[in-house]
Design a protein around this nucleic acid. Structure first.
Lengths: 184, 184
DNA sequence: AAAATATGTCAACATGGCTGACATAAAATG
DNA sequence: CATTTTATGTCAGCCATGTTGACATATTTT
């Protein structure tokens, strides 16, 4: 109630009040389209695993942790925090749940015994793969439909979108062979 | 405390227990890299306006609303809900704040007086542009650095990532000239 | 021995999703 | 014209996941 409709009849009589009327003069342009496409693509891309996660009573935070632990077995908590850019308290919550329910396990670091190296359990690996499958299929189909060369351009643009300071590390992370036996 | 470190010394003695050890045998491949790049790029891309939003005590939800109202002046609540894919209760919260603080105003629909058409106020338009600027700069720089032709490939891949059913509408939305004076 | 580091934890709080139920005004329909 | 459908708003509460601040412990480094 009480929506206070501004213009009952004389809308055109007060054009200066509504800046949005002048938006048509603004250059929306290909840049805005690219930004909106990123929004829509990401919106649908992350929606893929949600149904599966719900069956486990997990959320997207759990997904992210499972993914990066799977990609970098033996990753430390500090490294994971640096990737996810969240606080350790936020991470601790989902990590505790994942450990309690047997999807991730910890191992004391051998060089540095303060570290807790994280690994997927067999169940964790299975879940990770089930979560990854639809996203991989979606990306594969998108890259294929965009023709040859699209993948290189895609990678180049995405990498350039990353903060310049973080680019070397992101490159290192995405190209890393997931072997790591606890050297860090 | 009580972290229960699994392997005090004989890590290599029980390899079958840790599925993650075998991940090195898994094909991570370019698809996984593309997926992770999307994560990292989006992570940094959405971080741009956060600082500015914080000064207004707004969050990303406000940003999304401001953006799409700016892009489609006179958009209805139902259309906005369809874009954002959230519930009307969630939208109502941020929308109420944006209206109370004078960034968005409503107007009763002329054809259909049940509708509340949404517009940016002058302050809303200014905020929208200040929020958009860093993201546009980031995308422009990324596209430029990826060379000519990258933009077409980029757009093709992103559009193909969108749910097939939604693609026509997304295309319509992103190419829309933001004129609309209330015909819907 | 002291300081720094890696991690964990407790408590409290904020944002922004969600469901369910219900209200109102306007439009569409029989 | 009476009824139903539609577009929207709103109240109440819940949940997931982010935040800050303070502090504890074990371990490594200096």
């Amino acid at each position: 109630m009480t929506v206070t409709a501004k213009t009952s009849g004389k809308a055109a009589a007060r054009p200066a009040e509504r800046a949005a009327r002048d938006v048509s003069a603004r250059e929306s342009g290909p840049l805005t389209e690219a930004i909106e496409l990123l929004f829509f693509a990401y919106r649908d891309f992350i929606s893929d695993p949600d149904e599966l996660l719900a069956k486990y009573d997990f959320g997207r935070a759990h997904h992210r942790v499972i993914h990066f632990v799977g990609r970098h077995p033996g990753i430390t908590v500090a490294e994971l925090l640096n990737i996810l850019r969240i606080t350790k308290q936020s991470l601790a919550r989902v990590l505790r749940q994942l450990i309690e329910r047997g999807f991730i396990e910890q191992e004391t670091g051998k060089q540095d015994r303060r570290q807790r190296l994280l690994f997927l359990t067999p169940s964790g690996l299975e879940l990770e793969q089930r979560l990854a499958a639809p996203q991989q299929a979606r990306v594969a189909a998108a890259l294929a439909s965009a023709g040859p060369g699209a993948e290189a351009a895609w990678r180049a643009v995405l990498l350039a979108l990353v903060n310049e300071d973080d680019r070397p590390e992101v490159e290192r992370l995405i190209t890393a062979r997931p072997v790591r036996t606890g050297q860090n």
